[in-house]
Amino acid sequence: MTQSAAVPAHDAVPVGDGTIRPFRIEVPDAVLADLRDRLARTRWPEPVPGTGWDAGTDTAYLRELCAYWQDGYDWRRHEARLNAHPNFLTEIDNQPLHFLHVRSADPDALPLVVSHGWPGSVAEFLDVIGPLTEPGPDAFHVVCPSLPGYGWSSPVREAGWGPARMASALAELMDRLGYARYGAQGGDWGSIVSTELARAHPSRVAGLHVNLLIAGPGPDDDPADFTDAERASLARMRELGRDEAGYLRQQATKPYTLGHGLVDSPAGLASWIVEKFRGWSDCGGDVESRFTRDELLTNITLYWVTGTAHSAARLYYENAHTVSPTAGQRVEVPTGCAYFPAEKLGTPSRRWAERQYNITHWTDMPAGGHFAAMEEPEALVDDIRTFFRPLRGK
């Protein structure tokens, strides 16, 4: 499968003309046939007897998932669900940018740009877009971009696409859409890109809402004063660094070494992604207790048909090799944090966060993990509404 066959619509975006064009996701039949053929020819490793998830993705589970992907999963049904929302393409800073733009019927709705992370996509937000746009006092016009290098925003064309440059592209997008004032929301890289957006454009960002916030103790903090929750957070981060950070080191140092395999092998791609959905969610070790197979495979298939696994991984490399012009600056925009208890990458400490953010809203959620919009969509929507309610008229 060639990249051009996987993403033919990218050529329809003129370089630098600044227009916004309606876009329809239409993956060629040949790409889907090629996917099924590759799955049928997968070479499977032979794990040590008794090995489950402790050494990585469980082979027995992955074989079942890929068998369903080959013979049972219907991409066209989920493609139609994505196309049920208005999709658009534009080009910003010499980079195609795909986004969903779903306007509320309420003319007074607050624009809200919602950003995904890795290994997610715009498919994460399919259960929250409708509720967020419902007419009423808490209505939003939702803009949901595929970050540059992800999905139909295509592989990045040049180096330098770190979080700050992505935030600049989102600011330009909102300007093109005519939104002078808006909210920003995100998790994972979406939270970091949204933070950069809030730092760089505080007069335009009405509020920043995140479901991942990374903040640690300062050099003068006395460990004896840490709360039990703070100690648990630090222990979890140490565990993450010891047992769970291999993906981060690889993608931050040699993303293309990994990327060649991810773009060539659908089984390899599924293994790389599904392990994170299991490990980072509130699933108790059973990934399908939180996500259906179709939900998992829609997100994975999105990476496959666009040929963007290598480019998405490159964001870690760019972040490690670029410095934001606003690095170290405190976020003065009102900030809300929804902390989901199974989130392994963030911190539950409001006092640490307040040193870096103007925290005006904090919610300790009863359940859920890293993929909040998929795991606990109603709770996330309610928290977003509550946070932005006092900010709408300012």
Rank of each mutant, 00 (worst) to 15 (best):
A40F: 03
G259W: 07
D108K: 13
E230M: 07
C283A: 03
Y303M: 08
S289A: 15
T292L: 13
G246L: 00
L65F: 07
E196Q: 14
Y317E: 03
R278P: 03
A338S: 15
T227Q: 05
L345Q: 10
L170S: 07
D71H: 15
D188Y: 04
N87K: 00
F125M: 09
A159R: 15
V156R: 15
A367E: 14
L112T: 00
D221A: 01
S146P: 06
R392E: 04
V331D: 09
D71L: 06
P145T: 07
D127W: 06
L62V: 01
G160L: 06
R293I: 00
G369S: 01
D93A: 07
H361L: 09
G368R: 10
D364Q: 05
W44P: 00
N87P: 04
G369A: 01
H310V: 12
F23L: 08
D127Y: 11
D188F: 03
W280E: 04
E318C: 04
R278V: 03
S289I: 14
G186T: 02
L82Q: 02
P255W: 00
A206Q: 09
W53A: 01
G160K: 06
G368Q: 09
P96I: 03
L269K: 09
T326S: 13
W304N: 05
E158A: 15
V122K: 13
G149R: 10
L296H: 13
Y303Q: 09
I359K: 00
G186P: 01
V205N: 08
G218Q: 12
D108S: 11
W75P: 05
R231Q: 11
V210M: 13
P135N: 00
F371G: 01
P47Y: 01
W362Y: 12
T57I: 09
S265L: 02
G218N: 07
Q3W: 14
Y357W: 15
S115P: 08
Y317S: 06
Q251G: 07
H85E: 12
G18D: 12
S115M: 15
S115G: 08
G186Y: 03
Q251E: 11
G218Y: 00
R238V: 14
A267T: 10
G187K: 05
E295P: 12
A5C: 11
L345H: 06
G207F: 02
D382I: 03
F23N: 00
A353H: 02
R76Y: 05
G368L: 10
A206D: 07
R157E: 12
L391T: 11
D220R: 11
E158K: 13
Y339H: 15
P22C: 12
R314E: 05
D220S: 13
T306C: 03
G50W: 04
W352Q: 05
